[in-house]
Simulated scan of single mutants.
Amino acid sequence: MKKTSTSFYDILGISSATVCLVHCLVFPLLTILPLGLSHNPFIDLFFAVIGSIAVFKIIKKSNLLVATILIISMVLIWVSVLSEIILDIHLDLIFIGGTGMILGHLLNYRSHKISNH
């Protein structure tokens, strides 16, 4: 049961962080096209909430390295998202945080996969 729930949260975290990172990298390119699109920081907030849920579930059962990577990455994402919502300042910390989230979840998934075989 624990293996399945941890794997689920790792896959959720990897998927959410990847989609968020793609969104953050591709969306600025789409705004230069005359499609009438504008950036909505609440989409980033949505990804941050999903990522936080996955991180809180995983850090209880992960090793210190994975927990540290995930917590620091989540803090970077939250600082970036909140600065954009509150101060209307776009920080590139979200890219570093998103990459760290993917790395942390992959490391956690790999360590659980190796320890369960």
Rank of each mutant, 00 (worst) to 15 (best):
residue 105 H to F: 15
residue 20 C to D: 12
residue 104 G to V: 01
residue 78 W to A: 07
residue 44 D to S: 14
residue 60 K to E: 11
residue 13 G to S: 03
residue 107 L to E: 04
residue 116 N to A: 15
residue 44 D to V: 01
residue 23 H to L: 10
residue 40 N to A: 11
residue 12 L to D: 02
residue 22 V to L: 15
residue 104 G to F: 06
residue 94 I to T: 08
residue 94 I to R: 05
residue 98 G to M: 03
residue 82 L to P: 05
residue 10 D to L: 03
residue 57 K to A: 08
residue 105 H to K: 00
residue 50 I to Y: 05
residue 91 L to Q: 06
residue 12 L to Q: 04
residue 68 T to Y: 07
residue 104 G to H: 01
residue 89 I to V: 13
residue 49 V to F: 15
residue 4 T to L: 05
residue 65 L to R: 05
residue 92 D to A: 13
residue 41 P to L: 07
residue 95 F to H: 10
residue 41 P to S: 06
residue 95 F to V: 03
residue 12 L to S: 03
residue 29 L to C: 02
residue 6 T to Y: 11
residue 63 N to G: 14
residue 116 N to D: 12
residue 14 I to W: 05
residue 23 H to V: 06
residue 32 I to N: 14
residue 28 P to Y: 11
residue 84 E to W: 13
residue 76 L to R: 02
residue 36 G to Q: 08
residue 78 W to R: 00
residue 105 H to G: 06
residue 82 L to N: 06
residue 1 M to I: 02
residue 109 Y to I: 01
residue 91 L to R: 01
residue 50 I to F: 09
residue 69 I to F: 12
residue 71 I to Q: 07
residue 89 I to T: 13
residue 93 L to M: 10
residue 89 I to D: 12
residue 67 A to S: 15
residue 2 K to D: 12
residue 80 S to T: 03
residue 80 S to A: 15
residue 43 I to E: 07
residue 52 S to T: 14
residue 26 V to S: 14
residue 8 F to V: 01
residue 43 I to R: 07
residue 45 L to C: 09
residue 9 Y to R: 01
residue 88 D to A: 14
residue 93 L to Q: 07
residue 39 H to F: 15
residue 10 D to Q: 08
residue 14 I to S: 06
residue 115 S to A: 13
residue 36 G to T: 04
residue 68 T to Q: 09
residue 7 S to D: 10
residue 57 K to P: 04
residue 43 I to N: 09
residue 29 L to S: 09
residue 95 F to W: 06
residue 68 T to G: 14
residue 46 F to S: 13
residue 64 L to M: 09
residue 115 S to K: 04
residue 59 I to V: 14
residue 83 S to K: 07
